[in-house]
């Protein structure tokens, strides 16, 4: 089937307010991407326009050289790049063959621009993230 499994998307806080029909619209935009063991998935400081969900395999993450918890199936990274075209904040390296589903900025943006309900729910998710960050 084309696109990402809905149950993977449901674990992403950015999409938490979306109903199953809205999630399905987004799921269809994802494309499978495979990384070989040892491959650098994203590099801290580089540009990025894709968000990835891990379907199988594991990856390590590091920020400024400091190790972060291992990424496993169901984990995700790069969701803010879907919105702000910003720099990667971590380096992620596949420690086994890695199957991901990826969504790019260019596919995501037209969907959000054309659907006010999805856009509003994403804003609510971002607002929650902002409050959580301020509380830390």
């Amino acid at each position: 089937m084309a696109g990402a499994p809905i149950e993977l998307l449901q674990r992403v806080p950015l999409f938490a307010e979306l109903d199953p029909g809205e999630l399905e619209q987004i799921a269809r935009l994802f494309k499978e991407r495979r990384f070989a063991k040892g491959e650098t998935v994203v590099m801290e400081g580089s540009g990025g326009a894709a968000f990835f969900l891990i379907s199988s395999g594991e990856a390590t993450a590091s920020v400024g050289g400091a190790e972060r918890p291992t990424l496993q199936p169901g984990d995700y990274f790069g969701e803010i790049a879907l919105i702000d075209e910003g720099r990667r904040s971590a380096t992620i390296t596949a420690t086994s063959d890695l199957l991901c589903y990826g969504l790019t900025f260019w596919e995501f943006r037209p969907l959000v621009e054309g659907n006010g309900i999805i856009a509003w729910k994403l804003l609510q998710s971002l607002a929650k993230k902002l409050r959580a960050a301020q509380a830390d």
Binding site: E32, S46, G47, G48
Partner: peptide, 18 residues
Amino acid sequence: VRDIWWSANSDSAITYRQ
């Protein structure tokens, strides 16, 4: 073909585009 599509959307290609 999918790998080539992703190579055009890879971080290095995006960094270059920016």
